[in-house]
Amino acid sequence: MDKLTTAAQNAKTPQQQRGILITVVVSVLFICAVLLGFLHKMGQPRVLTDSELRANGAVKLTRPRIIDNFELLSDSGEPFHTSALAGHWTLVFFGFTHCPDVCPTTLATLNQFYQMLDADTRKQTDILLVSVDPKRDRPQQLRDYVRYFNKDFRGLTGEFITIKRFANQLNVPFNKVPLDDGDYSVDHGAQIVLINPRGHYQAFFKAPQDPAKMKLTYRSMRATFSG
Results as ranks from 00 to 15, higher is better:
Gln191Glu: 15
Ser220Gly: 08
Asp187Trp: 07
Asp183Pro: 00
Ala190Asn: 03
Lys215Met: 10
Gln191Tyr: 13
Gln209Ala: 12
Thr217Arg: 01
Gly189Phe: 11
Phe205Lys: 05
Ser220Ile: 04
Leu216Pro: 00
Arg198His: 10
Ser185Ala: 14
Gln202Lys: 13
Ile192Trp: 09
Ile192Arg: 00
Ile195Ala: 12
Thr217Ala: 08
Ile195Trp: 14
Ile192Pro: 03
Arg219Tyr: 03
Pro197Ala: 10
Arg198Met: 11
Asn196Gln: 11
Gln209Lys: 04
Ile192Asp: 07
Arg219Asn: 15
Arg198Glu: 15
Gly199Pro: 05
Lys213Pro: 00
Ala207Gly: 02
Gly182Val: 10
Asp210Val: 12
Ala203Arg: 03
Gly182Lys: 10
Met214Gln: 07
Ser220Pro: 06
Lys206Met: 15
Gly182Ser: 09
Arg198Ala: 14
Leu194Thr: 09
Tyr218Val: 05
Ala207Gln: 12
His200Ser: 15
Tyr218Glu: 05
Pro178Phe: 03
Gly189Ala: 13
Asp183Trp: 00
Pro197Met: 08
Pro211Asn: 07
Ile195Tyr: 13
Phe204Leu: 15
Ile195Glu: 14
His200Tyr: 14
Asp180Val: 12
Lys206Ala: 13
Tyr218Lys: 01
Ala190Cys: 01
Lys213Arg: 14
Pro208Asp: 07
His188Lys: 10
Phe205Trp: 09
Asp183Gly: 12
Arg198Pro: 00
Ser185Gly: 14
Asp210Pro: 03
Asp187Cys: 05
Asp183Tyr: 00
Lys206Trp: 00
Tyr184Gln: 01
Leu216Tyr: 02
Gly199Leu: 10
His200Val: 09
Ile195Thr: 11
Pro211Phe: 11
Gln209Ile: 10
Gln202Met: 15
Phe205Pro: 02
Ile192Lys: 01
Ala190Val: 03
Leu216Ile: 06
Gly189Thr: 14
Leu216Met: 09
Tyr184Ile: 08
Pro208Arg: 02
Arg198Gln: 15
Arg219Ile: 00
Asp210Phe: 04
Ala207Ile: 02
Phe205Arg: 01
Phe205Ala: 02
Lys215Cys: 02
Tyr201Ala: 07
Thr217Phe: 03
Val186Arg: 04
His200Gly: 11
Leu216Thr: 03
Lys213Val: 01
Gly189Pro: 06
Ala207Leu: 03
His188Asp: 05
Ser185Asn: 07
Gly182Pro: 03
Pro208Glu: 08
Ala212Tyr: 10
Lys215Thr: 11
Lys213Asp: 10
Gln202Ser: 12
His188Val: 09
Thr217Lys: 01
His200Ala: 15
Arg198Val: 05
Lys206Asn: 14
Gly182Thr: 06
Tyr218Gly: 06
Thr217Val: 01
